[in-house]
Design a protein around this nucleic acid. Structure first.
Lengths: 196, 196
DNA sequence: GCCGTGTGATACCGTTCGGTATCGTAAGAA
DNA sequence: TTCTTACGATACCGAACGGTATCACACGGC
């Protein structure tokens, strides 16, 4: 009689590990890593601190796992975009830009999780930093590959330009310094590709 | 005999308020806002917590004052660049880009203070956020003005493009996903201006 | 039946945090 | 000189932090 009727809030409760990661995702994204205590994650996941420490060695390990999942989601989305335009690298690049542009509203309040996490994790040794660096490296390599496949004169330079613009659009969205960010982002990428 | 010979570390000790702000600047930039305690700031400023709370109502007020100073330094640098190329808006814009490019090495380890602070301050009501938003708004208005003065066809769009690139170059420098960031940044801005 | 494992609940530990109270004193203005 | 103001030092407060210990229970495999 303790919990049978207590909280049907989540239909057909997921196993604890998934609930913990879901709760961590929501809270870290909304409030940042440092402001969210392990206790708060446990409460939102409808479990306890002890359960969290059974699945993750430390809070840092949980942070790293969260970012690993976010990176995998980006990776999957990029795979999808790439598959939608086989052998049309220019459309693939525009698809990437469109994916970022579509994600801007969700970013507007709290920014990019990778950028935010880097800001909160100054020590290079933190396990989550390796996750971020690997993700960014893969993303860059993929973009350079697309630019090369598109036959652009200087794939490294064009890839850098597009990277700058994609990242910059996200921080400009967050700090509100530019209006119509999504439209302007798409126009910018198109112009870069046209003049490359 | 308490302190006459103790620590000549800072020549002709500045008044406490300046020392506090200097210490806060160094620590906030190096480790982030939340990881730096008031006690740590006091020690580095060679004073005490009490002295800090005599000059600043709360830690948040100290954070806001720090960002106000950083914003003023950027503003002053931009004024200087603008004055160096009177009536040559294109050179002014390139001067801005060069100023950011020159600052990249200092940013490489710990990123832009405004972006980092936004990541650490999720609540819109924080006094420091207004400082950041006003600074970004002024910066955007100034850039749009330069683009208009340069006779570009769409000053708002070109200013947005340059804003994206400047911000994006800084985050790419921080996360190490792009090499030769300074060179690529300058080339990108030149290309944008050439094709605007 | 039984027994091991994963889970929930609670209490606790040591540390650090932002912020306050108190007191002695050094220095400048009158 | 005397008085006021700013400063330094120390001790303290309540709260929150990351992490651990303990115990009870529910369930699945055998």
């Amino acid at each position: 009689m303790t919990s049978s009727v207590s909280r049907p809030s989540r239909v057909a409760k997921l196993p604890p590990r998934e609930r913990i990661l879901d709760a961590a995702e929501e809270l870290f994204q909304a409030e940042g890593i440092q402001r969210v205590g392990v206790q708060a994650i446990a409460e939102r996941a409808e479990t306890t601190k002890m359960a969290i420490y059974r699945h993750f060695e430390t809070k840092d390990a949980l942070v790293a796992e969260w970012l690993r999942i976010v990176a995998a989601e980006y990776q999957a989305a990029f795979d999808r975009v790439e598959a939608e335009h086989p052998d049309h690298p220019r459309d693939q690049i525009l698809g990437l830009a469109r994916f970022i542009a579509h994600g801007l509203p969700r970013i507007s309040h709290r920014g990019c999780p990778f950028v935010n996490s880097l800001a909160e994790l100054p020590d290079k040794a933190h396990p989550a930093r390796q996750v971020i660096e690997q993700h960014k490296a893969r993303q860059t390599a993929r973009l350079i590959g697309m630019c090369a496949a598109a036959g652009l004169a200087d794939p490294g330079q064009t890839a850098a330009e597009i990277t700058f613009v994609l990242e910059g659009a996200q921080v400009s969205m967050q700090n509100g310094s530019v209006d119509h960010v999504a439209d302007r982002l798409m126009r910018t990428v198109e112009r870069i590709l046209d003049h490359a």
